[in-house]
């Protein structure tokens, strides 16, 4: 049975699309049939991060409105056999998303895919609701700063009350906390909230911590999901998250300050 996972946050710019791309790619590289859907209608970004922007013909809204078949809109990733992208429309707005339309798309995708990853738009409006409504699990992307934490708390409240699972009284949406743009050094200096601080406020199991990293921006600009950059810390962190999501037990990295060698302490660096 296919699982639907929404990548959400409430706040914008915290790394939802980066996470969606890396997470979906990570699942596909484990041999799982995965589709990642961009729900940010009007502000299409996922295609850029996935590096498939020049192959977009049809999009999510076309399929919902019956202008294209689902198979025509799905873009196969060239790097992973099991990964497909369903892009958003840049020219429409989020009201074009209808509950029935999305439901029928999910029903069709569930027949062939193991995992359906939904990249939610920021905010708590229609688009975000459409992205989260059918979710079985949610990865709540949070930056270690108070406004992001509060917005995540708000989204968690909505996940518990405004989703299909809540409406039908089923088992609640399984929630995971993902901290992104984390810098242990700045936590130590008291400039940033630590993992424990955020966990204490949100009371949520931690699926991983993505360190603040130059490689994320570089990967985004070149259209390569950062999980493919195996040498980068962020890439490794995303690979760990996928493994943890699939039930493997992996120790958390990048939470503590790296111990610096004596040479770098003397010479700085």
């Amino acid at each position: 049975m296919a699982r639907i996972i929404v990548i959400t946050s409430g706040k914008g710019g915290v790394g939802k699309t980066t996470t969606s791309a890396a997470f979906a790619m990570g699942l596909a590289r484990k041999g799982l049939k995965t589709v990642v859907i961009d729900f940010d209608v009007g502000l299409r970004n996922l295609d850029l991060i996935m590096g498939c922007e020049r192959r977009v013909v049809y999009d999510l809204v076309n399929v919902i409105q019956g202008e294209a078949r689902l198979s025509q809109a799905l873009i196969r990733d060239k790097r992973a056999d099991h990964l497909y992208v369903l892009p958003a429309s840049q020219t429409r707005d989020k009201d074009a998303l209808s509950m029935e339309g999305i439901e029928s798309i999910f029903d069709e995708l569930k027949k062939t895919f193991d995992y359906i990853v939904c990249d939610s738009p920021a905010g708590i409006e229609h688009g975000a609701f459409m992205a989260m409504y059918h979710a079985d699990e949610a990865i709540v992307v949070t930056n270690p700063e108070i406004s992001s934490v509060r917005d995540s708390d708000r989204i968690l409240g909505l996940l518990a009350s405004k989703t299909k699972r809540a409406a039908e009284g089923l088992e609640p949406v399984k929630e995971h906390l993902l901290l992104t743009r984390y810098s242990p050094e700045r936590v130590q200096m008291g400039e940033m909230l630590g993992v424990e601080d955020v966990q204490e406020i949100l009371a949520l199991p931690l699926i991983g911590v993505i360190p603040e990293s130059q490689s994320v921006l570089a990967a985004s600009n070149s259209g390569v999901p950062v999980v493919l950059d195996e040498k980068s810390d962020a890439g490794q962190a995303y690979a760990d998250i996928v493994a943890r999501f699939l039930g493997e037990e992996i120790p958390y990295k990048f939470i503590d300050v790296q111990k610096r060698g004596i040479m770098s302490r003397i010479f700085g660096g």
């Binding site: 708390d153 708000r154 968690l156 409240g157 909505l158 518990a160 406020i201 949100l202």
Partner: peptide, 20 residues
Amino acid sequence: RSGQRIYAPNGDLIIMASVG
């Protein structure tokens, strides 16, 4: 969670967890 509102109109309200 943030944004949630819980009302006990005729009695006590007991929360066994944290309030954001």
